[in-house]
Design a protein around this nucleic acid. Structure first.
Lengths: 231, 231
DNA sequence: CCTGTGCTTTGCGCATCCGCAACATCGAGG
DNA sequence: CCTCGATGTTGCGGATGCGCAAAGCACAGG
């Protein structure tokens, strides 16, 4: 295993208040691992043996229905903890974590969680702050799914990803990970057909530019309008 | 303020591991209060000054859209903590808590949370277990809203309430708090019209018996079938 | 007892969005 | 270079469930 540098963890909220030695301790306990795009890091229902930190890449948290349909519950970007079932008193993962692109993770045994909470100042509060943000995001998703039309939901889903993983490019802001029509439909509770039609229409109007597994938002302002106002 | 009995808190998970003296301390710090049906205990966005324990009654956690539509994010039954924004590093409440019927609560200042976590054994882990359950429930709601048809969502919403607040009566299991068609539609992202039609149809088939603000499930098994299978 | 407010029921027309199907396109791997 | 699989596009028909509207009912308060 290669030696990891302390500067990796220092800027990440749960570790921000720790000194160099504490971070060293934590790093020495961590298991580092690389994942290819499109593989599962852990599966819904399996024993929650470890918790993870995403160093680089993007992860989709998905649930699968008995009928085999997939729903993307949330996206996780680099620098965030995930798989923190132990923090919520769970012994199994409530959802599956799939890599959207190549990912680099650190992980620790679930059994270390209580010790981290106790020993490292700010770790618990910052971690639970993350949980709070996700709960907020899930709330928003529920409200959207319950009240908004497909077009608005798709617009809002794109905006959320732009905000979380937007990368400035020549013609606008690009969502910085592979993203198919099917993926978008799994987030918004619709079909890839409808998403395709919407993106085509928006492309004609100069709001987005999209290619294979790639979406660039060229006119965020108009997308916001689509996402809030009715047609 | 009347003297509260220790036996009130003893069976409730976050306090289960505490001895009589500790429970006494906690009770002496608590503010007890009664609410009429249909009033807000706190509002979305307001400062999270206190956290609450619901001693008796039922509470609906709702969010309101800019367009004025209401969504019931979850229901809370007696014996549960709510308004625990401070546990998630939030300074404002993410949603509004409205009483469904007459409710009795205890509450403590948000600033006491860290002390509770530190001083009382099991308080943190049990509280976060509650959070975990709610996250799981919200996950399920998202999946339902994204993949299921209206009929299935309504059936599942009823089943969830039956499980959480079901009271055995002569003809079946009654949902033990006032519940209008509008409420059900706010939970399932549909309209009161559609809910009314569904309940009427189910009543004809002997699956439910419903009256004003009152729903009794007489054939849970068939409701489960409706909730999972397609038509 | 009467009146009003809030809850519920029901019918009808229509827009949205899904399902199906066929085809086009791109990229990877042999 | 060719082939195959995954991804994306587009047209068409039809069902689901919403919107509107009108009216019936229960319950509380005077």
């Amino acid at each position: 295993m290669n030696k990891l540098d302390e500067s990796l963890l220092a800027p990440i909220p749960p570790f921000r208040r720790l000194d160099r030695m504490q971070i060293r301790e934590i790093l020495d306990e961590a298991v580092s691992r690389r994942f290819d795009a499109g593989v599962a890091i852990f599966d819904e229902g399996s024993d929650a043996e470890r918790f993870y930190l995403l160093l680089d890449g993007t992860i989709r948290v998905i649930r699968t229905t008995p009928a085999g349909e997939q729903v993307i519950v949330l996206n996780i970007g680099s620098g965030q903890l995930f798989g923190i079932a132990p923090a919520l008193g769970r012994t199994t993962y409530p959802a599956t974590a799939v890599t959207a692109d190549e990912c680099l993770t650190l992980s620790w045994p679930a059994s270390s969680w209580p010790r981290f909470v106790e020993r490292y100042d700010g770790f618990a509060s910052e971690s639970y702050r993350t949980v709070g943000q996700r709960v907020g995001e899930m709330n928003t998703r529920i409200v959207e799914l319950a009240t908004q039309h497909v077009e608005q939901r798709v617009a809002n889903a794109l905006l959320r990803m732009v905000n979380q993983s937007g990368k400035k490019v020549e013609i606008g802001i690009e969502i910085d990970f592979p993203l198919t029509r099917q993926n978008i439909s799994d987030m918004t509770g619709t079909t890839l057909h409808t998403v395709s039609r919407l993106l085509s229409a928006w492309e004609k109007n100069g709001i987005v530019a999209s290619g294979r597994k790639r979406v660039v938002v060229t006119d965020p302002h108009r997308l916001v309008l689509l996402g809030s106002g009715p047609a």
